[in-house]
Every structure is written in C-alpha cells, then in structure tokens.
Simulated scan of single mutants.
Amino acid sequence: MSDQPSPTRLTDRKRDAILQAAIGEFRQHGFNGTSMDRVAAAAEVSKRTVYNHFPSKEDLFEAILLLMWERSQSPEEQQYEATQPLRPQLLALLGHKMRLLNDASFIDLSRVAMADMMHTPERARAIATKLAAKEEGLPRWLHAAQQGGRLRPSMDVPYAAQQLQGMVKAFAFWPQLAMGQPPLTPAQQQQVLADAVDMFLGLYAVPAG
C-alpha cells in the first residue's frame, strides 16, 4: 500500500494504528478468526478505543476496504481532455485502478471478503455497493468523451465501464484472487492495460474524419 502522510491528531493516529493493525489481523486470521480484542492488542490501544472508532468488526472491515480503494486513487482525478488522444487518457485512468488490483494486501483482504460473502452475502453486497458507488471516475470520463462525439452515441456507459474494467480484472485480479497466481510484473501490467484499451476503443471509438 502506498505511503500516506502521518496523522497529526492523537485520535487520528489511533484510528490509523487500528486500521493498520486490523489489516494484518484480517490477512492472517480471516474475518471470523479476527476479534476486536486481537485488533486492540495489535494496535496497542484499549478495546474501548477500537469500538469508539468502529462500532463493529463489520464496520472496521468495511473501513479497511474503503481505505485501500482511496489510497489507490490519484490525488487529482483524470479529467477528459477534448483536445488530447483518447488512448493515453484511458491508460492513465486505468493505471490508477491497476495499483489497487496489484496490491497484495487488497488481494488478501478480497479473499477474506469472498469467504465471508458465502456466510453473509448481504454484508458483502453492501460493501460492494459502496465500493461501486465510488467508481465514478471512469463512467464520468466515458460519458464526457461520448458527449464530445468521440465515443459511439449508442454506447451504454455503465455497461461499457464494467466491460473495460472486467477485461483488466480478468488478468490482474481474478487469477490472483482465485488461483494464487503472482501479481503482474510492470511489463505485464502495461500489456494488459494497452490491450484492453485498444480493444475497447476498437469497439466504441468514433472513427476520425
């Protein structure tokens, strides 16, 4: 996971310590094997402090997934540039997504989430809905490019966004999650991104001229 500025307020430092400790506990022991007592001990805070920040283990796990998603994002969202070629813009936009998919901690925690989903699918759906709601950058970019006449007017933006991300996840997420394959090398990441973007634009881009 990428480095973040150290929190300055004591309460923020404690919250950050809890999150970091919980990441290790969930990765090592899974959802059911992790307790708030374990997290408190690992974070070197009282259990009351843990509950003050996170009312339940479910809230704590959700906060971790959202934190990891936020850390994968660019500080400045990629904006659609009408005068620039589409391909490098899409590559840059998907590159930020690749950072998260290539994060070993995120993969491990995704396995925890998948295992928990089998027992409590309603909680998994709630987390997935919140993560999906944050995935606004790509649909917004696609819509702007479509409005600018550079992507086909018949394109269904939500479907196309899911389609494009699915091509990337087919190589950079699901094999690692389900089959334990190693993370992609930088060269492999670039190839996956380039091929996905090229296939996507081949289908949806409006021919020049």
Rank of each mutant, 00 (worst) to 15 (best):
A178G: 01
M1K: 00
A194Y: 06
P139H: 04
L203V: 12
A82N: 06
P5V: 07
S154M: 04
P5C: 01
S105Y: 15
G33L: 05
S46D: 12
E62Q: 07
Q4R: 09
K57W: 14
S154G: 10
R71Y: 13
D37H: 13
Q165E: 15
H119V: 14
I64F: 14
A160D: 04
Q165D: 04
Q165F: 07
M199E: 11
L131Q: 08
T129V: 14
L60G: 07
F61G: 09
Q163I: 03
D116Q: 15
Y80G: 02
R87A: 12
A113D: 11
A82P: 04
K57H: 05
R71V: 14
G137H: 11
M1A: 08
K57A: 08
V50D: 01
N52W: 10
F171L: 10
L177I: 04
A133H: 14
V157L: 03
N102T: 07
I127Q: 04
I64D: 10
V197D: 02
A187E: 15
L138S: 10
Q78H: 11
A22S: 13
A194V: 07
L151F: 14
P85I: 08
R123I: 14
G24Q: 14
P183L: 08
A172D: 05
E44G: 05
R123T: 14
E58H: 09
P121S: 06
P55W: 05
P88H: 08
R38Y: 14
K130G: 02
Q146W: 03
R48I: 13
Q89V: 09
S56N: 05
Y159G: 08
M199Q: 15
R9K: 12
Q79W: 08
A82F: 06
A172R: 01
A187R: 03
A205Q: 13
P121M: 02
P207R: 00
S105V: 14
E25Y: 00
A41N: 07
S35P: 11
I18F: 04
F173L: 10
N52A: 10
G149C: 04
A208E: 15
G24R: 03
T49S: 15
Q146L: 07
Q78R: 08
P183I: 10
D195S: 15
Q189A: 12
L184M: 00
P55V: 05
L184N: 01
R15M: 03
I107P: 09
F26D: 04
G95Y: 04
F200K: 00
T34C: 08
G180E: 02
R71I: 11
P207K: 00
A205R: 01
Q28C: 10
Y204N: 00
S35T: 15
Q181Y: 01
R71S: 07
Y204G: 00
K169P: 01
W174C: 01
Y80C: 06
G202E: 04
E122C: 11
W141S: 02
D59M: 03
A40L: 06
L10G: 06
Y159W: 11
L86F: 07
S35D: 13
F54M: 02
G209I: 06
F26S: 11
L19R: 03
R123H: 14
P175V: 06
L65A: 10
W69L: 15
L93V: 10
Y204F: 11
S2D: 11
A126H: 14
Q165K: 01
P5F: 05
R48D: 12
A128D: 06
L65E: 11
D108F: 10
L10Q: 09
G149R: 00
G137V: 13
D103H: 12
A115Y: 13
I18H: 01
